[in-house]
Nucleic acid binder design. Structure first.
Lengths: 223, 223
DNA sequence: TTGAATTTGAGAAAAATATAGCAATATTTT
DNA sequence: AAAATATTGCTATATTTTTCTCAAATTCAA
């Protein structure tokens, strides 16, 4: 029977970073063949223990006295992340954000293929973004029925997002990459990965505030 | 003496989301005056206990038997996040991503003012993005010396990012909003908030893989 | 080839985070 | 005005996550 250990979100959040560092090692002039958790920990500024623990969730990738084979580990993490299989990605919204995402060449290397872009503005429908011709939003439903779409990217304002998300879900899309500033309501088997830029900026603002010592916790006690 | 309790990153990550929900309540047709941790917990799909615990890190904002005053709580969280003071933000890189960020109108509402944009491509220098005229990268150093810059946004490829970051740090910038796919090396008093889009997409891919049951942990055990 | 040095994997301990429980206090109802 | 209900803030408990430790396996140096 398969062991169904649940892997924590914290571990999963870190996996892509391991993948990035290992990829960098492979790209370097003198390609590194092996690396120990200790060496990697110094590069990445995390504990060696955490690296070993994280990797062990997925299996014993290393060897005592040797460390980890960089290429092997890189490939395995890629498999874990599902990067060895292709994903068809569409983008809803052809604004700057949508176009920025469409132009990320590096995504292609990792098994993500942008197959279509949609916009509701008739003025841009029919124009091209790279190789892709922007389609009308009205054609989205039909497109979804005729084409395999693994990931739909929502790069539209929040007011329009829920409606489009519903349409996506109705047509069997199982994963949404959401850049709209709201939490989408979707069935449990649909995955939503949020990129809330404004929240990121607020965290930065918070940290700035802390450094400046502007904010005094105590003040709130005596309101 | 001021109590110097350390507030965990987990709490800080959640604050902007509370802020967003409270803001939504204030924008609704029938403005809500008060809310209990229980009601908010149902909206946000977290436990009421967590909400109370989180807020209590910063002070007692609620009242027994009543709950929290929405407007008051919203304002206070805004203060905690440093949103009541203005931040001058510059953007390095005038590609689609840079322009997307420049056009986020909602940032302006929250005390972020975009004051300049830089690009190394002579063809775009001098052209306008909204009200802002794109400046040459060579002028960045001088600009930093003459203007107060609270946050610098790096929307450039990773190969150029470290060099620009060094220049920013040399000229006293204390906060970097980094969209380049690398970890910047900066002194400890400089804050870096990373937005690694490719990592976000990989997490989505991981989750997709899990749902499909494509990935079997056990397989790795017997390599 | 042998002994010293490395380094993993895994279990145990420690730390951090989240949840539950409840006294105190306010609000609402009767 | 009294009783019932609601709800916080805080403490205690439970859970999760991270770090520590070390035996076992491997590599490296002489």
């Amino acid at each position: 029977m398969m062991v169904e250990k649940n892997i924590s979100q914290a571990v999963i959040r870190r996996l892509p970073r391991y993948y990035r560092y290992l990829g960098q090692l492979l790209e370097e002039d003198v390609e590194v063949e092996r690396i120990s958790s200790h060496e990697l920990s110094q590069m990445m500024k995390v504990t060696a223990s955490q690296i070993r623990q994280d990797l062990n969730n997925f299996g014993g990738f290393g060897q005592q006295g040797y460390g980890y084979n960089v290429k092997f580990l890189y490939t395995e993490i890629g498999k874990i992340l599902g990067l060895e299989q292709n994903h068809n990605v569409i983008i809803i919204g052809s604004g700057h954000l949508g176009q920025a995402l469409a132009n990320y060449k590096s995504f292609g290397k990792r098994g993500f293929t942008f197959t279509a872009m949609f916009d509701k503005d008739p003025k841009v429908v029919g124009t091209k973004v790279g190789d892709i011709t922007i389609k009308a939003m009205d054609d989205l439903g039909a497109f979804l029925k005729e084409n395999q779409v693994d990931i739909a990217t929502l790069a539209i304002p929040k007011d329009a997002a829920e409606e489009v998300a519903d349409l996506l879900v109705e047509n069997g899309v199982k994963a949404i990459w959401n850049f709209a500033h709201l939490d989408l309501e979707v069935p449990r088997d649909v995955i939503v990965e949020n990129v809330h830029l404004s929240e990121s900026l607020m965290r930065l603002s918070y940290d700035l505030n802390q450094n400046k010592g502007e904010y005094k916790k105590d003040a709130y006690k005596s309101r």
